[in-house]
Amino acid sequence: MSNGHIVIGELFGTAVLILLGGGVCAAVTLKKSKAKDAGWVAITFGWGFGVLGGAYIANGYSGGQLNPAVTLGVAIKTGQWSHVPYYLIGQFAGAIIGAFLVWVVYMGQFAAHLTDAEVLAGHDVDPAGPSTRDESLPGGPVLGVFSTGPEIRNAVQNLLTEIIATAVLVLFILTQGMTNGLALNGLGILLTALLVVGIGLSLGGPTGYAINPARDLGPRIVHALLPLPNKGGSDWGYAWIPVVGPLAGAAIAGGLYRLCFT
Rank of each mutant, 00 (worst) to 15 (best):
A27N: 04
H83V: 06
G245K: 00
F172W: 13
V24R: 05
F12E: 00
V84W: 14
L194T: 02
I163V: 12
G177K: 13
L137I: 03
V142G: 03
H83S: 11
I164M: 11
V197R: 13
G233D: 05
G79H: 12
F172Q: 13
I76T: 02
L226F: 09
L225Y: 10
R133G: 00
L182N: 14
V168T: 08
R133L: 06
K77A: 14
M107Q: 15
L101I: 11
G233W: 07
L20I: 14
Y56T: 03
V168Y: 12
A95P: 14
G46W: 05
P242W: 00
I96R: 02
T207E: 03
G94P: 11
V28I: 12
P206L: 07
G188F: 13
E151A: 04
F12D: 04
G144Q: 09
S202A: 15
V244W: 00
G218T: 06
E118N: 15
N180E: 14
N212G: 06
F45I: 15
L66S: 06
M1D: 08
L203W: 11
V7Y: 14
L101M: 11
V244H: 01
A224I: 00
I43D: 08
L20W: 10
F261K: 04
A193S: 15
V28N: 13
K231F: 10
G79S: 13
I76Y: 07
V74A: 12
F92N: 08
I221C: 04
H223P: 00
H113Y: 14
N158K: 00
I221N: 01
K34Q: 15
L195K: 10
L66P: 05
G204T: 02
L259V: 02
V156W: 03
L190T: 14
Y87V: 01
A93C: 11
F49S: 01
S82Y: 11
V104L: 08
V156G: 02
E151P: 09
T132Q: 13
F45Y: 11
G245W: 01
A214F: 02
A38K: 04
S33W: 09
L101A: 04
Q65P: 02
I8W: 14
I173S: 07
H113K: 07
G13K: 12
A69D: 08
I8F: 14
V24D: 05
P68V: 00
V70H: 04
P138K: 05
L203G: 07
A93R: 04
P246N: 05
I252E: 08
I241H: 01
F92H: 00
G50K: 07
M107W: 15
P213N: 04
P227K: 10
N59F: 11
L114E: 07
I189P: 07
R258L: 09
D116G: 01
A165E: 12
S202D: 13
N230I: 00
V156L: 12
E135C: 03
A93D: 02
H123K: 15
R258G: 02
T179D: 15
N212K: 08
T262G: 06
V51A: 04
